[in-house]
Design a protein around this nucleic acid. Structure first.
Lengths: 188, 188
DNA sequence: AATGACATGTAAGAGGTTACATGATTGT
DNA sequence: ACAATCATGTAACCTCTTACATGTCATT
């Protein structure tokens, strides 16, 4: 038995409420995209495996046209598995920022290319920040009557912190590059 | 041919100075670990491919005992390839923070488990932050006589920003958990 | 009439990690 | 004497992404 993180993403989400594979995909994209992602290529096969090993059960809603809707729920065995995983130490963080790779080698290309990479990174970040701020409000509204979302809020808050400081960096970095350009211009 | 980021990490590092595979590994670990990582399992095979396609050349230092030292350098063709890649838009950022996955599902386990995850995450982050602060000083010292490291400094500054705000989050999150009124039911 | 949301899935391959194998040299 | 660093590499395995395939229903 493997034990990839994808299993626990699914088990964890199902621990809130029963869902279809489609729902799981949506939930991951809206609620976890700032720190983890999985797609259908992982979701459907993993769901089948989890069911085979009795960590989840499914209820099929038969539809004459189109694919049957399959609603999955965690079992006690699945909850136990999730809890055991939760108690083990987490693996180290992995960051892959291709944009920074390009920025780091900026010496090799004209400055405007790098400024554009920074701008694009900033734009992607600003968009994610907006989403998280929206999510934060939503969760906070929920929180007053349902404490069950408290822990889900923490990663959102970290994301907001990180994205905010990334945007500050982007603005400072752009300035640094432009000021450097002026320096060289004065020398000539 | 494929075009994975690993190639460009290597090409980019070699654009500063000629290196062995071992050196590349070290350089990645010390200078890029906050936004990208590759290991020997990618370095040696990629180096061979790059050489085959004339993007790099190698000079072999023969040693009677142990493996020969192979020093790689970029060719003009390699520099061109790197520049072309640098001008293309970067792929979206990927963050994989298993710790946050565990924290998000904290409802399922006693709160001390989650506090521990946060503490461990904080410790890992603090260590990386120290490394980056050290790196920053080193690069800044270099920068006065060699402008060639300027762009390498930018990712370091982002890392410092991100790690600092992560540490602030960790402290706030721990407090939030400790001060929270515990509801009965889900806690073991 | 078109778009987007709902809903299922597979197959191939790219990308990345880990464990293994080997051994000299340099510093404490 | 022991540990760390220098130095090469492979093979198996796992993980993840991408492209494909199909079709309904609700909204604009």
């Amino acid at each position: 038995m493997k034990e990839s993180a994808a299993e626990f993403v699914i088990l964890g989400l199902l621990s809130y409420t029963s869902m279809t594979g489609y729902d799981i995909n949506k939930a991951v994209k809206t609620r976890m995209s700032s720190f983890w992602d999985i797609g259908y290529g992982q979701i459907y096969p993993t769901l089948r495996m989890l069911e085979k090993d009795a960590y989840v059960t499914k209820k099929v809603e038969i539809k004459e046209n189109g694919p049957n809707r399959k609603v999955y729920s965690v079992t006690n065995k699945g909850t136990k598995k999730l809890q055991e995983w939760l108690m083990k130490p987490a693996k180290p963080e992995i960051f892959r920022l291709e944009a920074l790779l390009k920025i780091a080698f900026g010496e090799q290309v004209p400055k405007h290319v790098i400024i554009k990479h920074i701008e694009e990174l900033r734009a992607r970040t600003a968009e994610k920040l907006e989403n998280l701020i929206f999510l934060e409000k939503e969760v906070n509204a929920h929180l007053s009557d349902d404490e069950g979302y408290f822990f889900g809020l923490l990663p959102v808050l970290l994301g907001i912190n990180i994205y905010r400081s990334s945007i500050e960096w982007a603005d400072a970095a752009t300035k640094m590059i432009e000021e450097r350009k002026q320096k060289e211009g004065n020398v000539r």
